[in-house]
Design a protein around this nucleic acid. Sequence first.
RNA 1: GUGAGUGUAGCUCAAUGGUUAGAGCACUGGACUGUGGCUCCAGGGGUUGGGGGUUCAAGUCCCCUCACUCACCCCA
Length: 421
Amino acid sequence: MKIRAVTGVKDILPEEIWKWRFIEEVSRKTLEEYGFAEIRVPLFEYTELFLRSIGQTSDIVEKEMYTFEDSKGVNISLRPEGTAGVVRACIEHNLISAPSMEKFYYMGAMFRHERPQKGRYRQFFQIGAEAFGSEGPQVDAEIISMLHLLMDRLGIRDTVIEINSLGCSACRPEYRKALKDFLGTKLDLLCSDCRRRYEVNPLRVLDCKNPACKDAAVNAPQGMTCLCGSCMTHFESVKEFLTELGVPFKFNGRLVRGLDYYTRTTFEITTDKLGAQNAVAAGGRYDGLVEDLGGTSIPGIGFALGMERMAALLPEEMQRPNRIDIYLAPLGAEARRRALLLLHGLRSRGIRAESEYQERSLKSQMRQADKIGAAFAGILGENELARGVLLLRDMQSKVQTEVPLDQAVEKVWEQILKVHT
RNA sequence: GUGAGUGUAGCUCAAUGGUUAGAGCACUGGACUGUGGCUCCAGGGGUUGGGGGUUCAAGUCCCCUCACUCACCCCA
């Protein structure tokens, strides 16, 4: 068998990795401005954790988890999402307690055994954040507005923020019943998937893309009309705060999340530029999850964003940054020996320097300097060697200056500073 | 899990069933023997995804298989 990467996973090559780093850097900065602290939790957990958090009947658990037994027969799963592990760690290490706010963020790989397609992989990277300790609508608005700011900083436009409220443990069952009563009269109009959903999770019928189902559900009761008083007030406040913060959003009464733990506010940032996978970030409140997993009753809210999808949406005009400051082009064995020392000096000073190690024409070395995008070329031939100088060429302006070899490191440093400012 | 499309050089793609499977880009060298991007010339690079079949002859037709892509489903 030919050796290759496993189906549905991909290598992120050097020519593209700058996008990931850019997204990570901007996200880190933004999250930390909002008071989130990084946490790293394992890539795998006992399967039971996901069964209890995400929900037995969710598609993720039913058919998308990488589940296996280790050599001792312990049932393990690769994490399909990040929230469950973070909540587990918080409970285990007593990181959260009732009234005080605690905020965490993470970035890393998630695994789902789905059929790969555009924007969907079996190993994919998410950046996620979770805020515990407050059920106040300010937190909801803050998280959504933070995402809005983050998208803006990344230069990603053409996305829409959609929000909805799913109600709480008091009013959701009522809505579910109302919806079931309504859909019960339309069963023969629904697709086979939706007839199954009707039994297991009727809310998801609203999410079906099948035109017949959309028609059948057009007059379905909206979740909003069934919200209890406190959920209604909460949702109204979230919308008010968002408006005050200047965050544009769209109410979408059909926005249903695929994970069972969500309550009250849910939101999604969508785009039409990614084919069938339109969600770039999504999240919501999960006021019951901590308790469900064995902690005390602590409300929480969080989101996750898809790095591959973000990377695909970065503005096309963004360029891969230069990775080398100076390329040394030595001519002859003696010059190459001297270049080795100079390289060491430059690099020790924090200058990104590269060189050719074999005998090659100056022409080809200059071509190489150009190809890797070096800001400067340093030419060191017999001529220069004899006079103890380095010929420094600014690749953009083509201006060449000679600097004394024994001061080369400092001179190069000065020139680079000039270019960078 | 279901459906459709596509597999030929590192990449993008040509090649009526018929000679030794080509081109552009990329790479290397040269024209310019010490100066990058443009131009021109030359060179290296292939188990035509894999296996079987039909045929005098298969990259081309048939079957199987694998992979990729897109979509359904679902989601970040």
